[in-house]
Design a protein around this nucleic acid. Structure first.
Lengths: 116, 116
DNA sequence: CTGAATCCCGAACGATACTG
DNA sequence: CAGTATCGTTCGGGATTCAG
């Protein structure tokens, strides 16, 4: 998988830089699961993100890999096994993903309280 | 501006919940500027996000308002003046936006170091 | 099991021009 | 100043099928 050049994407806005790497409907969710579980197989990720189709999972994983956030290890066994894990660069996103997760939790609590 | 129902969007995934609110190419950037400068006029925001067209800025602001993250105050003077500010709900995003901003800063430093 | 290939659609985005 | 109207384009994402 050819890597994208990731060092020429400054936008002059720090937030906008970050958006470029984690935009996409599933990227931050994928990173969340990878950062919380070290190594994950394709099927494991798929099971944890059921509303993401295998096609989309593969595509977003490819982009994350091209951006240097994720590493892929293929074992040419039968049946094939593939491991995904966050790179060091990817792990630097921990504060971002954590903040997003915590906000989503608070939102859940809010919504629940509002429902009853 | 009619509000969207924001309390029925739980997805079972905390990160995914958050993504729903700040997805969109400019929303997190807009929130960044609103959270750092309290009240901002349309033109001020536009000046700070030059690569966002007025049309897109208006649309994303509308969505943020419908989602309860942003408040809009219109002064029917001539010429017209409009103030935007983050609601309390919107301010709860501070940790998320801050984390994104800090990551973007680090990325900038990395990219700069890589360039030379 | 993993994930590429093809096809398709709607949403998101952008440029330009225009208005109260 | 603060947007809207219109139009066109691009891109993300889904369904299905197929392959190593």
């Amino acid at each position: 998988m050819k890597k994208r050049e990731i060092y020429n994407r400054q936008t002059g806005c720090s937030v906008e830089n970050t958006v470029q790497f984690i935009s996409g409907k599933w990227k931050s969710v994928i990173m969340y699961h990878l950062l919380n579980n070290s190594t994950q197989r394709f099927g494991q990720l798929n099971a944890k993100i059921p509303s993401c189709t295998p096609r989309m999972l593969a595509r977003q994983l490819n982009e994350l890999e091209q951006d240097g956030l994720v590493e892929k290890h293929v074992y040419e066994t039968v049946p094939m096994v593939t491991d995904y894990s966050a790179t060091t660069f990817g792990q630097s996103l921990v504060p971002v993903i954590t903040a997003m997760s915590e906000w989503g939790d608070k939102y859940n609590a809010l919504a629940k309280a509002h429902a009853k």
